[in-house]
């Protein structure tokens, strides 16, 4: 008889179950109709099985989004967990699509599934990548724009993980401000 180590057949469980969503911009449909759930996973191995199977973000058409959210939270402002929340926003230049986009998004996913923000990971709702001709965006969404301690911890760790230079400023904005903004920029609650 052969003894097989459990390491070889037991998958590594994640702290949370996650859902990957895809948004494709079809102007003949409503915003919600363009949003589709791709799949859910709750182990490291199933995360990679999904990630290895889908298109890299840099190959998506303009107007598309991927969203990774905790199971039970929908990737929209209206969800109860997002209503009083906000996001750390990373805006990328057109040149960065080739150099940084896929690397930044994978790093963002690894931060989420690996619970990189320790106990402040409970404040994380999910992350979104927007593919846009005028400039791509990546954001981590958190649940409470008033939880300064969690937000600043998440922002510091995230910036370090992405390798964003200290002199580059990233901003945290509430969804309420983003939804009601009049111009093209939203004021930062934290930097």
């Amino acid at each position: 008889q052969k003894v097989v180590s459990p390491e070889s057949y037991i998958k590594h469980p994640l702290q949370n179950k996650w859902a990957l969503w895809f948004f494709k911009n079809d102007k003949s449909k409503t915003w919600q109709a363009n949003l589709r759930l791709i799949s859910k996973f709750d182990t490291v191995e199933d995360f990679w099985a999904l990630y290895n199977h889908i298109q890299l973000s840099s190959n998506l058409m303009s107007g598309c989004d991927y969203s990774l959210f905790k199971d039970g939270i929908e990737p929209m402002w209206e969800d109860e967990q997002n209503r009083r929340g906000g996001r750390w926003l990373i805006t990328l230049s057109k040149q960065q699509r080739k150099a940084d986009l896929d690397r930044f998004w994978l790093e963002t996913l690894l931060c989420l599934v690996g619970e990189a923000f320790d106990d402040h990971s409970d404040d994380v709702c999910g992350a979104v990548i927007n593919i846009r001709a005028k400039g791509d965006k990546i954001a981590i969404w958190t649940t409470d724009y008033e939880n300064k301690e969690a937000i600043t911890h998440i922002g510091r760790v995230y910036k370090e993980r992405l390798g964003v230079p200290p002199k580059v400023i990233i901003g945290y904005q509430s969804h309420a401000d983003t939804a009601t903004k009049s111009g093209s920029t939203t004021k930062n609650k934290f930097v």
Binding site: V44, N52, L110, V113, G114, E115, D118, R161
Partner: peptide, 18 residues
């Protein structure tokens, strides 16, 4: 309870394992 945390090195190593 305890939180299940994985660092990036471990997660990346899992990508290539069978």
């Amino acid at each position: 309870g305890t939180r299940i945390i994985y660092d990036r090195k471990f997660l990346l190593e899992c990508r290539s394992s069978p």
